[in-house]
Amino acid sequence: MNTPIEKNKNPRRDFLKILGLAVGAAGTVGGASLLNSCTNETGEPGEKVKLLTQDGKLVEVDAKSMTLASDVENEELLTEYQKRGREGIPGKKWVMVIDLARCQNARKCMAACNSAHELRPEMHHINVLEMQNSEDTAPYYMPKPCYHCDNPPCTKVCPVNATFKRKDGIVLIDNERCIGCRFCIAACPYSARMFNWFAPDLTEEQKQRTYDIELNVPQKKGTITKCLFSADRLRVGKLPYCVSACPNGVYYFGDKNEDSVTNGTSGETVRFSDLIRDNAGYTMHEEFGTKPQVFYLPAKDRRVPFEQAKKQTENNENA
């Protein structure tokens, strides 16, 4: 008795999917050809664009030669980016450890992140906060990326599956699909998400690139953005932008399945479980039940007293 009902359901869903693909494809192809027609005039020689070859390698191609590529190829590239972006990197389970004892508020992580993701200056995928747990306890700096929770409240509330959790643990955003309802901002108790309230400051050139879901670039007006654990860098075997940019050895990044994390400054690789156990590692607000995958090591033995560091930041900002 059940089968006919189910049979009825599936074709409809398939139909919707096909309809969606058709509408989406028509839109993108139309958009791409429009953009291409502009590029013919404005494409400056020497501009490089990253491309994925058929055997999965990233190559840099002159932007001008891009205009020769047909619309179909652009469309294929987008489909490929979207497909691998949704699947994730097989066999991995990414994890980050932040050693609060070492953070001196250098903010190199924030700068590296902002330039990689082409964010406006007030947007922070990673934000270094000045924290003090209570009046009598010592203040400290706390870099706060997205925690890539294993039970993410943001993905549950998204009405269109534009933000989703991949098998390798990364919570990504599809700004080709996001409708900009901002429910996910309300749902995230860690304020990890931000919105493109205005059109991003991009050059024509930047706008024309094929959207890479793993870098969330180009940013789009009216959609969400947030920390992506630099999924694009992980795909080519590199550490995230913030992790490699830190001069003070604050960040460890690695694979929980292998139980190993690598320090972005020293390059030293250690066992994740040992690091957490020996240093009393913890996650933020476990009581929310979100199961964050970013771990903190306590802010002991800080190298710089807070007040002094604070002055340093002020000087940096004034300079």
């Binding site: 534009a162 699909r177 996001c178 900009g180 919105f195």
Partner: peptide
């Protein structure tokens, strides 16, 4: 933010 994509709710 993207009222042009309101149909996404039906599609996805």
């Amino acid at each position: 933010g993207r009222p042009d994509r309101v149909l996404n709710i039906l599609l996805h």
